[in-house]
Nucleic acid binder design. Structure first.
Ligand SMILES: [Zn+2]
Ligand SMILES: [Zn+2]
Ligand SMILES: [Zn+2]
Ligand SMILES: [Zn+2]
Lengths: 160, 160
DNA sequence: TATGAACTGTTATGCTATAACAAAATCGGC
DNA sequence: GCCGATTTTGTTATAGCATAACAGTTCATA
């Protein structure tokens, strides 16, 4: 790990297992093919709650002894994102698993600059507010990126 | 130009002149050194309202006959951003001039996917809403990136 | 004009992402 | 099961974005 451990201690094995199980179910339902590679990349993405770069995933794949090149990873990520199983963190050029892949959505994120964790949130109405204001400019919104950086609960300075 | 012309026809020469004049004044006031290179990069950034990549700026600098390498551009951009004269568009790895550099602020952007233009907006209260929700998660926000993509007024499909 | 601080030049390198094409696996109809 | 069409994967090469490191220059000011 290049970053500190996950901000919130918890049964992370459960996070991983749950994410993979959901992915299996969803892809089954949708007739999408969660192939071995794709599933493995998803599992690697879920190794932590901190977004992970494509080339770090590539290293992990290679540690498996697999033959892998950048397109291997990027294709898998493209598929996983198309299925809503993974989101891209624009301000980090990195990827993180989605805990709520059942319903399609764009995620909003809190990104801890100390431990690296990404927390997906839903700031109710914010997207609609932005769409409404955009409309006043004659602008039709099709996608939004909302990412906040700062310090998570566990990484607050001690004098808080 | 690699993109279509600016979405809104207007006296863009005025945009450029105004931006440079404001930059001169602000840097003067602040004792910041708006050197020749930095001023030239700012002028180049302002050639359009569409965010421009660092390497495109580099090309333009070289067309001036100047010796320039990537750090030349990135250093200038770093300075201009530190002075609030330029904002970075995360979802495009590109940079755009700020029309309101007097007061320090983080910008929110509408990005047209057709003509490339970036419109800086202020969605009142959205940042505070996000900060408030973050606080509920024990999260202290220090910076936010809010970028919406879609179609600007002039780029709407004809059947609208 | 000496001196330190800020800025710039230059070379090299690292990280992120995709193009292009060949090979293999998978699926559906026969 | 076999075959052609489609999808996925392998492989090589390259494009695009950003910074490290160090040397040289300019600038403010004492
Ligand atoms: Zn977990
Ligand atoms: Zn943290
Ligand atoms: Zn203009
Ligand atoms: Zn447009």
């Amino acid at each position: 790990m290049t970053k500190a451990a996950a901000a919130t201690p918890h049964d992370h094995a459960h996070c991983i297992a749950s994410a993979l199980a959901q992915a299996d179910t969803l892809c089954e339902q949708r007739g999408a093919r969660l192939t071995k590679n794709r599933r493995r990349v998803l599992e690697l993405v879920w190794q932590s709650h901190a977004p992970v770069g494509a080339y770090e995933l590539l290293e992990r794949l290679r540690e498996d002894g697999l033959s892998a090149a950048p397109p291997t990873v990027y294709r898998a990520l493209e598929f996983l994102m198309s299925q809503g199983l993974v989101h891209r963190i624009e301000t980090r050029n990195a990827f993180v698993g989605c805990p709520q892949p059942q319903h399609e959505h764009e995620a909003q994120y809190l990104l801890c600059e100390a431990c690296g964790d990404a927390v997906e949130i839903d700031v109710g109405g914010v997207r609609r507010r932005i769409e409404a204001l955009a409309a006043q400019h004659g602008f039709t919104v099709t996608a939004q990126t909302i990412e906040a950086r700062g310090l998570c609960r566990r990484c607050q300075p001690a004098d808080a």
